[in-house]
């Protein structure tokens, strides 16, 4: 299987903290890969590391290979916006408030392709059509558009240079449910048309189930489980994935108590970071870090007795 993006043993440290502690993941061409987890699991930092947009003071090690080249430590300005682009959570603040949408498209298009103003406008209109927005949006200022429309604009902008990889970081979190659904459909549809790969960073397991081919579940800076979306989310083997799914209120489940996960996230220096919160914890879990076997980083996957 060919690989578009491969992240190998990525570690990120900020000051004394090590929020990402060895993440390895792979995105194939035209594949939608979910990176799911809760606040502080390192999913957003992983996405930013691929783009080279880590906050100042953060240090990354490991390998980030895109199209055969190791990007880590290199200047990624030439790649950002062309080969890899990002769709952010909050479209309201991602746009310059005093420039029209058209003006912002032209700015980006000309910076990347050096085309004429006129050509850039024509291309911008074309892009807006592809996200099913009318041309007049070009003349609108960001505040005149709804959150859903802005998110469509951001997706159009992200696709403007035909990237091979799009990183979507909580792209639907700030949107209403019906709008979020439309955006997901749009993303899926565009992905089928253009064939780019997607790294879908989210806390929303249900959305990941709907849109992803494969998912990686992150906990405390490590991948704890990976596999196809249906395998992981319908038959979770890692206790954390199981607990997370049990905590999720569902339309199709009977009412009653939800399984909550006791305690809060801690980064263990020894053994498994989830050990303190795990219902199946054994002595081994506290002393030895479980290696990933068969897509699960757990000594006793599936709660085996």
């Amino acid at each position: 299987m060919t690989t578009l993006l491969s992240v190998e043993d990525l570690e990120i440290s900020i000051g004394n903290g090590r929020p990402v502690r060895g993440v390895s993941l792979r995105v194939g061409p035209g594949e939608i890969v979910g990176v799911v987890g809760e606040t502080g699991c390192g999913k957003t930092l992983t996405g930013l590391a691929v783009l080279g947009l880590l906050p100042p003071g953060a240090h990354a090690s490991g390998r980030v290979v895109l199209g055969g080249r190791d990007l880590l430590g290199q200047d990624r300005r030439a790649i950002r916006g062309r080969e890899v682009t990002m769709v952010f959570q909050n479209p309201g603040t991602a746009f310059d408030p005093v420039t029209t949408i058209g003006g912002q498209f032209v700015r980006v298009l000309r910076a990347h392709t050096g085309c004429t103003r006129k050509a850039a406008y024509a291309r911008a209109a074309e892009l807006l059509t592809s996200v099913e927005l009318p041309d007049r949006v070009l003349n609108a200022y960001p505040h005149q558009l709804s959150g859903g429309m802005l998110q469509r604009c951001m997706i159009a902008l992200a696709l403007s240079c035909e990237p091979s990889l799009v990183i979507a970081d909580e792209a639907t979190t700030a949107l209403d449910v019906t709008v979020a659904r439309q955006i997901l459909r749009l993303l899926l549809q565009l992905q089928r048309e253009h064939g780019f790969g997607v790294m879908f960073v989210t806390h929303n397991l249900a959305e990941a189930r709907d849109i992803c081919d494969r998912v990686y579940v992150l906990y405390a800076g490590r991948v704890v489980e990976e596999g196809t979306a249906s395998a992981v989310l319908d038959g979770p083997r890692h206790p954390y994935t199981r607990a997370l799914l049990g905590a999720l209120p569902r339309l199709d489940a009977p009412r009653g108590r939800l399984d909550s996960i006791p305690g809060s996230v801690t980064h263990a220096d020894q053994g498994c970071s989830f050990a303190d919160r795990c219902t199946d914890v054994r002595d081994l879990c506290r002393t030895e870090l479980p290696a990933a076997r068969d897509g699960v980083a757990c000594h006793f996957p599936g709660g085996a007795a």
Binding site: V177, R181, A206, D210, I211, S230, R250
Partner: peptide, 14 residues
């Protein structure tokens, strides 16, 4: 109700 996520790729109904 149709917008509630979690029913898999088939539910996306492109």
């Amino acid at each position: 109700l149709d917008s509630v996520p979690g029913r898999g790729r088939a539910s996306m109904d492109l």
